[in-house]
Design a protein around this nucleic acid. Structure first.
Lengths: 182, 182
DNA sequence: ACCTGAACACCGTTCAAGT
DNA sequence: ACCTGAACACCGTTCAAGT
């Protein structure tokens, strides 16, 4: 079926977009690609490696703002990238846990903090901000899915609040990190 | 077999402690309790509800420091509770996503921020800190498991760094939240 | 090189039927 | 009331064998 690694990852992304992480299985993916499950393992080592590949793509879609000196801007860019695909934050979180340091948002933010902080603290600072962004967006996306499935409308105020809640958190963390700088 | 809900949750906790979240299945749990899988569903609605129950127990083991005015102390207490059982942070994170607001760490921290912040911000502040703690400990516990299974010793410096890294993050966030207070 | 067939070792959940 | 038997509808992964 002239399948290759890129097409497998493409298919997986499409599936993630449509069904979410819970609906993304190797068997379903194989079926959609017109192939038997075993065939996928000729192109990809495991489902976990496939998820790391997807995570890389998600983060690569964020602007490579080498010019940006602003950690606030970087946080916003990463959030947008995560929001661009269903369960994006969860996928990236998994990838970060599975292959620590393999992804880029750390590297980018690390550079931003490297001048204001000693190396050890710069690492901590970057991780602190990354964790906030990942946690925030994961909650955001999970809530969206809970609302859509449970039909529990909750308070509709929440949706409007998210942007300012995110800005509030980023501001607090970034300014806090600056203040704590040694 | 005179089984009841409490014993099911007890068994699940024990299993979590021994095998981790990946090794905790309803079928294995049933086997260990000397019962067939279907029997569990007479006592517990689903695996997800069971996990929420476990999460509640984990957080209840944290000191109810009503007296504490210090968010830093509360963060430390929550961290200790999460660390007391394998994959504790992951279980609590799931429970928080599945039943938002059902757990207590939010409530406790919320009260701490309620005097320095307007209600909306107090909510955001509490969530920001909770997210940091959960993310930090999840990473901490995942890394421990990766190291133990992969035998990839990494740099052994990491283990010694975690305490100060946690303190650094908490300090930055708490002082940042105070500074941003309206 | 690339894929199928077919299996292995699992899952969570449901539900009639037994006691 | 509490549990078993047995099924339903799935998983991820492996690997001989085919082409």
């Amino acid at each position: 079926m002239v399948l290759d690694r890129t097409q497998v990852v493409d298919g997986a992304c499409e599936m993630l977009r449509g069904q979410g992480l819970g609906g993304l299985s190797m068997r379903r993916l194989a079926h959609d690609l017109g192939v038997k499950p075993g065939a996928l393992y000729y192109h990809v080592e495991s489902k976990q490696h496939l998820l790391v590949e997807i995570a890389t793509r998600i983060l690569d879609s964020a602007p490579r703002t080498i010019s940006t000196t602003d950690a606030r801007q970087a946080a916003n860019d990463i959030r947008d990238a995560l929001l661009s695909i269903r369960d994006g934050a969860e996928v990236v979180s998994f990838a970060l846990a599975f292959r620590p340091g393999a992804l880029d948002p750390f590297g980018q933010l690390h550079r931003l903090f490297a001048d204001r902080h000693p190396p050890r603290e710069a690492r901590w600072a970057a991780r602190t901000l990354v964790r906030f962004v990942l946690g925030f967006v994961a909650e955001e996306q999970n809530q969206a899915e809970l609302v859509s499935t449970t039909l529990l409308a909750d308070f509709p105020t929440r949706a409007a609040e998210t942007d300012s809640a995110f800005a509030f958190g980023v501001e607090a963390i970034v300014s806090g990190l600056e203040a704590v700088a040694t």
